[in-house]
Write a protein that binds this DNA or RNA. Sequence first.
DNA 1: GTATTTATTTCGTGC
DNA 2: GCACGAAGTAAATAC
Lengths: 220, 220
Amino acid sequence: MRLVIARCSVDYAGRLSAHLPSATRLLLIKADGSVSVHADDRAYKPLNWMSPPCSLKEAEDNLWTVTNKAGEQLIITIEEILHDSSHELGVDPGLIKDGVEAHLQELLAERMEVLGEGWTLIRREYPTAIGPVDILCRNAAGGTVAIEMKRRAGIDAVEQLTRYLEFLNRDSTLAPVEGVIAAQTIAPQARTLAEDRGMRCVILDYDELRGIDNKEDRLF
Amino acid sequence: MRLVIARCSVDYAGRLSAHLPSATRLLLIKADGSVSVHADDRAYKPLNWMSPPCSLKEAEDNLWTVTNKAGEQLIITIEEILHDSSHELGVDPGLIKDGVEAHLQELLAERMEVLGEGWTLIRREYPTAIGPVDILCRNAAGGTVAIEMKRRAGIDAVEQLTRYLEFLNRDSTLAPVEGVIAAQTIAPQARTLAEDRGMRCVILDYDELRGIDNKEDRLF
DNA sequence: GTATTTATTTCGTGC
DNA sequence: GCACGAAGTAAATAC
């Protein structure tokens, strides 16, 4: 990893055109060849960048050109270098995450009974013409139920489930299909809309879902 | 801006839980108080971060704690510091962009004929109770058409246009109103849904839109 | 201030 | 490899 603090101007020509007037910035050149330009604010987003794979060419006159496969270019005109250091970092072991939507979906699929006795999984990510339904299952009476899962359900989740139900109900081998919104939190307006459309709303407790008879799956 | 290269482990406790095992990384502390942790790959995304406003507290035993208003925490355990430097950057003049959705909309409004001979603009950003329609126009037969524009159209664009059409069609001076999705790329599932709902899909070519009889608007 | 929309989104996953 | 949806989305813009 190479860290350069420099007064520079930057031009990007690719999916759009962008220009950065002259100022002092951090240029971050990583081992994978990627380059990013950072100002002294915003933790997350660089002002400008080129994702790998790409190649950096430094011309003598302090003109850096970063090019990728698609022909997009980042042109950095260096006016003054204030700092320049390189560091050996090695491969990062990577981030370990816990508590995202996919995790919730796995847990619920393994424990359909939290929705009601006798409920059984048909499959996760059940495909339709407009995309996969998170969970398709059967209730105790044998009726088909489509479940839309979210960490936090908003109106968009209700709209999404509405579309799926519309398509699923055209399939005579499945119809009638009921809908369930399952989430850790459900926005009040989303609940109102969902119930207005005859959907059931279920609050999921993450610790409970993975805790009750699933102790061997715990991380601790 | 402070640049620290350190062997460290990191824990994030907030909207989710995440852990980074010990490794050598870049810690980027910016003037706005934000902190980000970078590995030696990926130009755009830090491994972990805390957006401003937040505060960094350095305990003597090399335990850094970054906290934000919501109580989320980033805990960095420093094992060895390999580099530590600070730099004065000043305020950045910021990025100047060209070629985004607003630009596409201007160009299409000036050249309605790309949608069909005899098509005429009624107005851009036509107001409705639920927000402005990108473009409202008339086709050769005199019928009203609402256009939803996107650089990349997804299902959300189709839903948006559906809502607009629902409201516009309640206005007897306009009804019946047809719908057009116009974008540089349209996701296949979005196209399926749009055509299912009787909307027309049009692919826009940016260079062609601004090139054909619009040379005076070119930048070069 | 909040809510909505955009993004050179990036990133993982299923097919 | 493509397409789709999630993200600690973040960031900009409208209201």
